Amino acid sequence: MTKLAKMGKGERDQVCRRYGYRKILDSCEQAKRDRCEWLWVDACCIHRRNTAEVAEANNATYRWFENSSMCYVYLNNVSGPSLPTARDNEKYSVSNGWPKWFSRGWTVQEMIAPSNVQFFNSHWQPIGDKKTLSRTLSRITGVPQHILSDGLSGNRPCVWNQNEGAGSVSVD
């Protein structure tokens, strides 16, 4: 962001049109509307083929999500006012028939760890929260609905299993 101020107008305009930049700005606007004092935006990816790096990132960020007052989920490839309730291999061909966010390695912890998860479509319009969407989210991810609506009690499940890949839940 500091380098951005030092760039020429053409280069700066090009950066400002990127998806990650828009995600940061729109997240900040939403956080302002929600009167949040602090915001952490996950706009960079880790090297997903490096299992040690993925495991370390999953374990470290779980606490960030767990301690947050709210977590925003920006579904950049969902344009409508709701989550899809059935697999659509044509519309979401690169992500097993569901919106791309559900194919990421740390999606499960982002849904389980925070008590308040708000979902937004590609226009930053609210779709719902994890409690009201728990039935659909459970169908998509395989995470039991009661964990999404009521949270975890007692011991938390393993977030990362190196033998199974990112997350302990698979999307069929």
Rank of each mutant, 00 (worst) to 15 (best):
R17Y: 12
V54L: 14
G151H: 06
L39Q: 10
Q30E: 15
D34P: 01
V159Y: 00
L148P: 01
I147H: 05
F102K: 10
M111D: 07
C45L: 12
N121P: 09
C16P: 00
C44G: 08
A86K: 10
G151V: 07
P99W: 04
V15A: 12
N96V: 05
N155H: 12
R139D: 07
C44T: 15
N77C: 05
G128E: 03
L148M: 00
D13T: 07
H47V: 11
V159L: 02
D150V: 00
V117R: 05
Y19N: 12
E90K: 03
Q109G: 12
M111W: 07
W38A: 04
S79A: 07
R17M: 15
T51L: 15
K131L: 03
C36V: 01
I147C: 01
R22H: 12
L25W: 03
E37W: 05
I112N: 05
Q30R: 13
W40G: 08
G20S: 11
M111P: 06
N77S: 02
T132D: 09
R156E: 11
I140N: 08
N59V: 00
R33V: 12
I46T: 09
S138W: 03
E56Q: 14
N77D: 14
C44Y: 15
C28S: 08
V94E: 15
N89Y: 02
C16Y: 02
T51K: 15
M70K: 07
W98P: 06
I24D: 06
R35E: 06
E37G: 10
D129R: 07
A57K: 03
I24R: 07
A86V: 11
L152Y: 04
T61E: 01
N59G: 02
Y21F: 14
T85M: 12
F65R: 05
W64K: 12
R22I: 04
L137H: 11
N96E: 14
Y21M: 13
C28L: 07
Y72M: 04
Q14C: 13
P114C: 06
L39Y: 11
D150E: 05
E90A: 02
R104Q: 15
R49G: 15
K91P: 00
A60G: 00
W38G: 03
Y62P: 00
I127C: 08
V41Q: 01
R63C: 09
S153K: 02
A52K: 13
S134W: 01
V108D: 06
I24S: 04
L137Y: 10
R48T: 14
Q109K: 14
I112A: 10
L39F: 13
R22W: 03
P144M: 02
T136M: 04
P126C: 10
K130Y: 06
G20T: 15
Y72N: 02
D26Q: 10
S69N: 00
A113D: 06
C71I: 01
I24V: 13
